[in-house]
Computed example of a mutant assay.
Amino acid sequence: MTPVPPSSIPGVSRETLERLTCFANLLVRWTAKINLISPGDVPHLWERHILDSLQLAPLIEQGSHVTDLGSGGGFPGLIIAIAADADVTLVESDRRKATFLREASRATGCRTTIVNQRIEAAAVPPAPVVTARALANLSQLLTWTEKLVANDGYALFLKGQQAADELTNAERDWHMTVTNIPSRTSGGTILKISDIRRV
């Protein structure tokens, strides 16, 4: 059963909502074949995944270039590509998920490049913005991001309730400038991180 999309989302145009709905319908169909999201999450797809990822769009300049790490089922990278009209490089090591990302990009008319490689092996140029969601602890994310973010760029990480602990651990090895933005869809936070360098 395909979850019903919201009738409207503040700050989101009707055209963008239609593209998000197209993406949601495709994801539900593919989830029956491959593990894009947990089957138990399907009824909550909009709240748990789409609206959660959508929080990043206002933090990214329209049309910007973004590198999304561990894109999986398209969160948050494809949502950003749709809502921020961004040019997004989606890095995903799983071949079947990469195939889904290509199909979803085509169906929704997104400007994306799908890189079907492990993050540490991905040869992509530094981007102004690097994003990730539900992927790894902060220290690991910073290790990957250091070479993938432009000198004056920043990272946006959707983190859960352990974000404060992860920050404390990461600060032992990393210098960074951090802005905490409370999540509107969960008890977690969005970490906006710039000036990333090893201590």
Rank of each mutant, 00 (worst) to 15 (best):
G11P: 14
P10R: 09
I60D: 02
N35Y: 11
P3A: 06
P5L: 05
V12Y: 09
C22L: 11
R48F: 13
T189K: 13
E146M: 06
T179Q: 15
A86F: 03
R111V: 12
I60M: 01
V149T: 14
R96G: 02
R14G: 13
G74A: 02
F75Y: 01
A98S: 15
A164G: 05
A32I: 06
I82L: 11
W30Q: 09
P43Y: 02
L59V: 04
R198T: 08
R198C: 10
W144K: 09
V42L: 11
I82M: 11
G40T: 12
P5R: 01
S105Q: 06
D87P: 00
V199D: 06
P10S: 13
W144S: 08
G70S: 05
I196F: 05
S64D: 10
I9Y: 07
K147L: 03
T67H: 03
N25C: 09
G187M: 11
T99K: 07
V199L: 00
A98T: 02
A136F: 02
I80A: 07
V42E: 10
P126H: 05
I80W: 05
L158I: 15
L138Q: 07
L135E: 04
Q117T: 13
I50G: 00
V129T: 12
R29M: 08
T179H: 12
S71E: 06
A164K: 12
R197A: 08
N151G: 05
A81C: 06
E61V: 04
E92H: 06
W174R: 09
L101E: 08
G187D: 15
V115T: 14
A150G: 07
A83C: 07
C22E: 14
L138P: 12
E15C: 01
S194N: 14
L90A: 09
G187F: 10
I37M: 01
D165K: 01
L101D: 09
F23Q: 01
M1G: 15
R118S: 06
P5A: 07
A121Y: 02
V12D: 10
A150V: 12
P3C: 06
T185M: 10
Q55R: 05
I119C: 02
E166D: 07
I80H: 04
R95E: 10
V28E: 08
I190T: 14
T113G: 07
A134G: 05
H44T: 15
E166N: 06
L138E: 08
P182F: 01
